[in-house]
């Protein structure tokens, strides 16, 4: 597999140096692997910190900036960052108003953020954590690690980020984040497997002419494999899987997300089918985002995320945001 890299071992460090060069509005500490908005800590503001394995760009580093995250901690590819990074990030963004950790539900992220929260509290910081677990492809049971955190992360970071930017206290920012988590579900599909730089060959086999339904963002296999389907059929499967788990009784925000290697042309066509499927099932969509936001390196495929909102959450969604990956309003 041809990759635009120097060596597999320097992929993350090289990307961080490039981010630093492209985004002077961020402080990118490539050595300690922390990305912080340049004006942090912002007086009176709750600090929002997230992080996770690299390979999901723009998540999380691309969502650092006014109206969203205050800091992000990139780990190695598909590997949770370490507590040292999170504690450093928390200290950098804490204005005395406390810090909220946004944690995707993977064993590694959960363990490292929990250790970091303990260490930060020992240093006198006030830390709350919210766990994002939106992927309906995984049965949430005692026999699994629980639903994975995927597309909902973008909604949590944007909406809780807007609340924090307005000066809401930690308890309120945490409650908003939890409300988003509770009302958000995702379902993903892979059309071609993912190749990590460390391995250099696909991490799973997916023959041409087949697709994997219920894929995770690290190439974890999903619910089942089927012969290739049309965009129309995939939209029906994804929407039905989500609605079987959470039937919205309010309008939704929709994220039609690319996994990395699927062209926008196809994603927009898929969005047309998602909107058709939702309209046909009586679900009202008030805002839609189409693009590569929560990716899986070079995996081909897509995911659908639906976030049930009320007027207040919609207002926070529409609030200005200025980050490398998401930018509107002023």
């Amino acid at each position: 597999m041809n990759m635009l890299i120097n060596t597999a071992g320097t992929v993350v460090a090289d990307a961080l140096r490039g981010m630093a060069a492209a985004h002077p509005e961020l402080v990118v500490d490539a050595e300690n692997r922390v990305i912080v908005r340049r004006d942090a800590p912002v007086a009176g503001k709750v600090g929002l910190v997230s992080g996770g394995g690299s390979g999901h760009e723009p998540l999380h580093g691309g969502f650092v900036g006014p109206g969203m995250l205050d800091a992000a901690c990139p780990g190695e590819v598909f590997t949770s960052p370490v507590p040292d990074q999170m504690v450093r990030a928390a200290a950098a963004v804490d204005s005395g108003s406390g810090v909220l950790f946004v944690v995707k539900n993977y064993t590694g992220d959960v363990l490292n953020f929990a250790m970091a929260a303990d260490l930060a509290e020992e240093e006198g910081l006030r830390v709350a954590s919210v766990l994002v677990d939106d992927d309906v492809a995984v049965t949430d049971s005692l026999f699994t690690a629980g639903r994975r955190g995927t597309g909902a992360t973008l909604f949590v970071e944007k909406i809780a980020g807007a609340a924090a930017e307005e000066g809401a206290p930690l308890e309120r920012v945490e409650a908003v984040a939890r409300q988003v988590v509770t009302g958000t579900r995702s379902f993903g599909v892979a059309l071609a497997p993912v190749t990590t730089p460390a391995k250099g060959t696909p991490t799973f086999e997916l023959p041409a002419g087949e697709l994997e339904l219920g894929i995770g963002i690290h190439g974890e296999p999903g619910r089942e494999r089927r012969p290739m389907m049309t965009s129309h059929e995939i939209a029906d499967v994804a929407v039905d899987a989500i609605l079987a788990d959470l039937r919205p009784d309010a309008p939704v925000l929709a994220l039609v997300n690319g996994m990395g290697a699927t062209p926008l042309l196809e994603l927009y066509g898929f969005n047309a089918e998602v909107q058709r499927a939702l309209a046909g099932r009586g679900v009202a969509v008030v805002r839609t985002l189409v693009g590569n936001y929560v990716t899986s390196l070079d995996m081909a495929g897509c995911s659908v995320t639906l976030c049930q909102i009320d007027e207040e959450l919609l207002r926070l969604w529409d609030a200005p945001v200025q980050t490398p990956g998401l930018r509107w309003g002023r």
Binding site: G75, S80, P83, D84, G108, N112
Partner: peptide
């Protein structure tokens, strides 16, 4: 190990 491994293996 906690400071350098990451993932679940680091803390464990």
């Amino acid at each position: 190990l906690i400071s350098t491994v990451g993932g679940a293996s680091g803390p464990l």
